[in-house]
Amino acid sequence: MSNNAAKHLFIWGSVLCFVILIVLTVDTMGKLDQRAPEITAEVDEGKKVWHKYDCIGCHTIFGNGSYFAPDMTKVTVRKPTGYLKKFIMNPRAIKPDSAMPVLGLTDKEADNLMAFLDWTSKVDTNGWPPAPILASARMDKTAGAGQVLFYRYDCAACHEIGGMGGVAGPDLTHVGSKHPDMEWHIRHLRSPETVVPDSAMPSFDHLTDQELKEIAEYMITLK
């Protein structure tokens, strides 16, 4: 390749890539509003509070920032804003060993900041941050009777749900989409081979009708 050819390839190739970037940028800008809730005056004022106190100097948001303090993207999903507001006004009054200093926010500023954080918590971030595998596999307070039975009978020894569990049997993360029929699951639990030919799964015929029904109910929620 001659020097001139290399030069032209560099210039025109780069221009082409930049044009593609601009096209994608225009397309993205048109789609962003549908992926997030409406921006109210409070949310906008809250964003200004976020900038004013240089929150990104310690925290991350959408995973970008300083890695010194927890990520704020989905903070209102698991923690109520009432708690967060109290904490932010005087962190060490709530948690004595907190690293966060008192920044001197006014009541109004704190309210607006909560509105802003509630907004970012509702943005569609393509599933980020992902639910921790262990925590999501563990039974939490929302676990239904079927989920409790699933672990009591150690179904997880052979089956994975959300990345947690054994791999001897099929992954059940989306089994509810594949088999939405409760009766199918009950028949299958009682006698796997009659439903799935050559199945290696043992029969759970010894379970009560009520237990089988509850596990089946849990299965069809896995979509």
Partner: peptide, 29 residues
Amino acid sequence: AKWMYIEVGLVLFTGILGLGHHYYWIGTP
């Protein structure tokens, strides 16, 4: 110079759209 052009060409061919790796989780499509 020839290799410099090839290098900077590849830097921009990969780098300009490589920008996308920052757009995975910030609310973008």
